[in-house]
Every structure is written in C-alpha cells, then in structure tokens.
C-alpha cells in the first residue's frame, strides 16, 4: 500500500520536474479563464431580459455548467499527453525492469501511476473551481449544482486517465499511446450522436457514451447509474492494465 504512494509521488515529481505539467496547468487556466470571462460577459448582457422571466436559469446554469463542460473537452485533448508516458516511457527508457525486478506487484505499479496522474488532475479541478467561487463576490451560487459539476468533472477526468494509462501499457511508443487514447476518448464522447440505429443498439451506445452521463451529473441530478458508469469505466481499464503487465511479465 505504501509503495503505491511511493510510485505516485515519484510520478508526480517527474511530471512537475518537466515543463509539461507546468505549461499544461498554465495553458488550461488561461483558456478556461478566457471562456469563463466571455460567459460572465454574456450573462451580464442577458441579465435584464432574464429578470423578466419567472423560472429564469441562474448564473450557475449559465456560467458554471458551460465552464465545466468546456474544461472536460479541453482536458480530453490534454490528458492523452499526460498519460502517454506512464508505462511506455518507462519501457522505452528501460526503467521498467527496475519496477519489475523489485518486490513490487503489478497492481501496485498501475495504481501508483494512476494515483500520480489523478492527483495532478485533482489539482487542475481545484484550480478551475476557483473561478466560479470568485462569483460569490458579486452574487449567489447554487452550491449543490457546483458540487455536482465538480464531481462530474473529477469522474470524467479519472476515466480519461484510466483509458490513457491502459493505452500507455499497450503501446510501444508514447506517441502511439497519445493518439490511441485521444481517438478512444473522442469516440466515446460522440458515441450518442448517432440516430436512426436500431433502438436496441441505440440504448447500448447511449449507455457507453460519456457525454450523456457527464451531462446528467452536471444537471445536478446525481443518479447512481451515472456514478456507476464512471467507476466501472475506470475500474475496467485499470484491471485491464494490470492484466496486461501480468501477461508481459510472464512473457519476459
């Protein structure tokens, strides 16, 4: 158990020793801050008209929900870059034998690596959440909905990281891992855009699609089926990664 934290700490250290983590954090904050400001601006313009409506959407609906939606899409592009190195870089720079020859089991390696990346992602979520909290200076927030958004973003990022980690286990080269996980994520994101398929297939595609589960959670309605979807999704790819390393160890 302690080894998981040791591996996670080293992973995080490596991320922050390279310019990658810093530049991604900076860039992400810049892009989202820009989007956030345009949303706030649009809300300020709409406000007089909204005041006339009886059940008008509040600032949380019009600013916070789109912010977390954009954050998920921007991170869909970024996370493959963070996860691509996890295993395949160790394999390429021949440091994997160090982990394999040490008395460390495969699940500790995988969970350690995963925990390292997820910690970085949690830092990102925290930094993003500072923006909506700044709105408290001039208005009120629907905190329930804000927490639902934070939860939704955390779960969706954890799932992104899990699939990225798995592809990093499979791919021989970090670039291939990045491209693979990016395509897989994009496909899962747009999976329910299809229409006119047989209703039976449609239900399955709809269930697999990340976007609908993400939006359900974002709406503030926390359903166990959506939570289970994300937890099962991450668990599946972590287990597959462990399996993959087990298989490889026997081969070597």
């Amino acid at each position: 158990m302690r080894l998981i934290f040791t591996i996670a700490a080293r992973e995080l250290k490596t991320l922050f020793l390279s310019p990658l983590a810093w530049s991604i954090l900076g860039l992400l904050q810049f892009i989202l801050a820009y989007l956030f400001l345009t949303q706030v601006d649009a809300y300020a313009m709409l406000q007089p008209r909204l005041a006339a409506l009886e059940t008008a959407p509040g600032i949380t609906d019009l600013v916070v929900t789109p912010l977390y939606g954009s954050a998920a899409i921007v991170l869909l592009l970024i996370i493959p870059l963070l996860t691509m190195r996890l295993i395949s870089e160790e394999r390429r720079s021949k440091t994997l034998p160090l982990l394999i020859s040490a008395p460390v089991s495969n699940h500790e390696i995988i969970l350690g690596k995963y925990l390292g990346v997820v910690t970085l992602l949690l830092i990102m979520v925290l930094m993003i959440s500072v923006m909506p909290l700044s709105l408290l200076a001039g208005g009120e927030l629907d905190f329930g909905k804000l927490f639902a958004n934070i939860l939704a973003l955390t779960l969706v990022l954890a799932s992104f990281a899990a699939i990225g980690l798995y592809l990093s286990c499979v791919a021989s080269h970090p670039t291939i891992a990045a491209i693979g996980s990016f395509s897989a994520l994009l496909l899962l994101w747009i999976l329910d855009w299809t229409s006119g398929l047989h209703p039976g297939y449609n239900a399955i595609l709809e269930y697999l699609s990340m976007l609908s589960h993400f939006q359900n959670l974002q709406s503030g309605l926390i359903a166990s089926r959506d939570l289970c979807y994300f937890l099962l999704f991450s668990a599946t790819f972590l287990l597959l990664s462990i399996h993959r390393l087990d298989y490889e160890r026997l081969q070597k």
């Binding site: 329930g144 909905k145 709406s219 503030g220 359903a223 099962l232």
Partner: peptide, 11 residues
C-alpha cells in the same frame, strides 16, 4: 446499475 438506479437532486 442502469436497471436499478437511485438518484438525488443536488440543485
């Protein structure tokens, strides 16, 4: 999990 789902409204 999809069949037996419970939910709570946080808004």
């Amino acid at each position: 999990s999809a069949r037996y789902s419970a939910q709570s409204d946080w808004t």
